[in-house]
Amino acid sequence: MRNIALFDLDHTLLPIDSDYEWGQFLARTGAVDADAFARRNAEFFAQYQAGTLDPVEYLEFALGTLAQFPNHQLDAMHQQFMHEVIHPALLPAARDLLQQHQDQQDLIAIITATNRFVTAPIAKALGVEHLIAAEPELDNHGKITGKLLGIPTSGQGKVIHLHQWLASQGKQLSDFPQSYFYSDSQNDIPLLSIVSHPVATNPNNKLRAHAEQLGWPIIHLFDAQ
């Protein structure tokens, strides 16, 4: 049976944080009040880096912003975001890592704390079919309401969502001979701890120290690291 390879997205496959950059994009293009939004976005990002972020509070702030716009406008803005911000950040090293697992015919999924609206086009651009992401609630017309469906896909939530996703396909993690998870953050230690091959990827200082203590592999995909 083939193996499974799981990837965090921001600062793992991307050298940037797509969620933070989406907020910066909205402020830069005048879609939201630039000063107020950038200030709030920066506060949340600092909390994320410190490991103190309340994920529901942040996600409903982000999704509430999306709820202000009709779907056709959101789609147009995201296309511009992909062109200006994301495509320049899709670097060969990340594509090569994905390709290694694709060549081995592994089951591949991106599992990210960022919401599906922001990340689904990015996963598609990376050639990854399966995405586990924070799910926005939609109304009967398919419009984002500003609320989060279920629990966040962060911390222990990634473990829960992974098990649910695998169960929906009639599988469990133990079915795979080898399981890989690539991540940059200590926030992902719960999921890193249950796979057979945890890989600290462009790790922050807290994850680097944890990985060194446990003898986990450490890799760097980007020149800035």
Rank of each mutant, 00 (worst) to 15 (best):
P190V: 05
I16C: 04
A123S: 12
D139F: 07
A36R: 14
F25R: 01
L26P: 01
E57I: 02
N187T: 15
Y48P: 04
M82K: 08
S154C: 10
A50L: 12
T12F: 05
L126N: 05
G155H: 01
P136I: 03
T119K: 12
F61K: 03
L148Y: 08
A89P: 00
Y58D: 00
H197N: 13
A133Q: 07
A224T: 00
T12P: 11
E212Q: 15
A5Y: 00
I108N: 04
A94P: 07
L126P: 03
Q105P: 00
A200E: 13
R2M: 14
K158I: 06
D96C: 01
G170I: 03
D184S: 07
M77C: 00
N140L: 12
A89H: 06
Y180E: 03
A123I: 11
Y180V: 03
P70R: 02
E60H: 03
G51D: 04
T65D: 01
P15F: 09
A224F: 01
Y58A: 00
S196L: 11
T145R: 08
E212C: 08
Q164S: 11
P88K: 10
D19A: 14
H101R: 12
M82A: 10
A123L: 09
G170F: 08
A224M: 09
H72I: 07
Y180K: 07
P217K: 05
T119L: 05
V195E: 10
L191I: 15
A76P: 06
D10S: 11
A36G: 05
F81Y: 15
I122Q: 01
E43Q: 14
P92S: 12
T65I: 14
P203D: 09
D17M: 04
P15N: 12
L53I: 15
F181G: 10
P70H: 07
A27M: 06
